[in-house]
Design a protein around this nucleic acid. Structure first.
Lengths: 155, 155
DNA sequence: CTTCACTCTAGCGGAGAGGTAGGAACAACT
DNA sequence: AGTTGTTCCTACCTCTCCGCTAGAGTGAAG
């Protein structure tokens, strides 16, 4: 399961993605409100996202945070990895942070590695394929659809 | 990441799968040794597997544990779910244990659900496809290959 | 009736999750 | 220069769960 941190990070980066067009700065307080995340906790998450190179920040009045890259190039996998670490279910199945498992006698003869790797690859393909921009676009489309399905009164 | 419990459970069920042909009982001590798992801890794990209906047990001398079903019909996903719970990264993306997320305002408008669901489906497809029997077969095949690559001395 | 195994309850140390508090540093504006 | 609004940093808290162990109880076989 995802940690709350990671889910909050996704919601936060998503609202940053919405404000990305004008390259403006959004304050932690504003993000906290619109993404529904405890403010102080969000601050810690944002610093982590900054340390990972996803977000940049500026202090002072009119300061805040913003995405560094275009939302279309930031994948859900990027955000999750920045907060929760590798996607794989075992260290030895990770592509981005490969490491022998602590308790595995011999990595060569481990019978579980290949299936763990296959599962990771399958999930990673989905999460790397999907960008923050994709999510916004999809949400906008479904809003439109909902509007068509429930037309204004009188029609 | 998988918990140690789940990885131990996989190793344990795998050794049970090896001993499944004769429908015999394997003691926790023997499993612990051959799967390299702390014995007392393994006992707890085996109880959990029993409660989940994967394993049956018998007491007394010549007692022990064995798989209930044929290894070819027990998937890696079955074992993991029995120990760690749902595969999905969020409760709202789980197929076997669907539940609204605790902190999600509205499940209908959640913008993350579809990608979480897609990732879960992709990983679950792999883990449900792969049975304990498959793993044994694959390991046996790779043993044979290794043997061919390193032929006996004098050839 | 002993022996060998599972079974159950209890607990324990450590790590990490999920926050919170308070203040220091910094930038803008007046 | 001073005020204000923001990020940034350090420290701390509580709670849960993980990983694991101890020890007594229960059932089955010989």
């Amino acid at each position: 399961m995802l940690t709350s941190r990671a889910k909050y990070a996704l919601r936060a980066t998503l609202t940053l993605a919405e404000h990305h067009a004008d390259r403006g700065w959004t304050s932690a307080g504003d993000i906290a409100e619109s993404a529904d995340v405890p403010k102080k906790f969000l601050e810690a998450i944002l610093t982590q996202l900054r340390d990972q190179g996803l977000v940049e920040s500026r202090r002072g009045p009119a300061g805040g945070h913003r995405l560094i890259a275009d939302p279309a190039t930031v994948s859900v996998a990027d955000v999750i990895r920045s907060i929760d670490g590798p996607l794989a279910m075992t260290p030895c199945a990770s592509a981005t942070a490969f490491r022998a498992c602590d308790d595995c006698a011999d990595i060569e003869t481990c019978r579980l590695r290949f299936v763990m790797r296959a599962a990771r690859d399958a999930a990673a393909a989905v999460l790397e394929q999907c960008s923050l921009g994709d999510i916004l676009a999809r949400a906008a489309a479904s809003m439109r659809r909902a509007h068509e399905l429930v037309p204004p009164l009188g029609l």
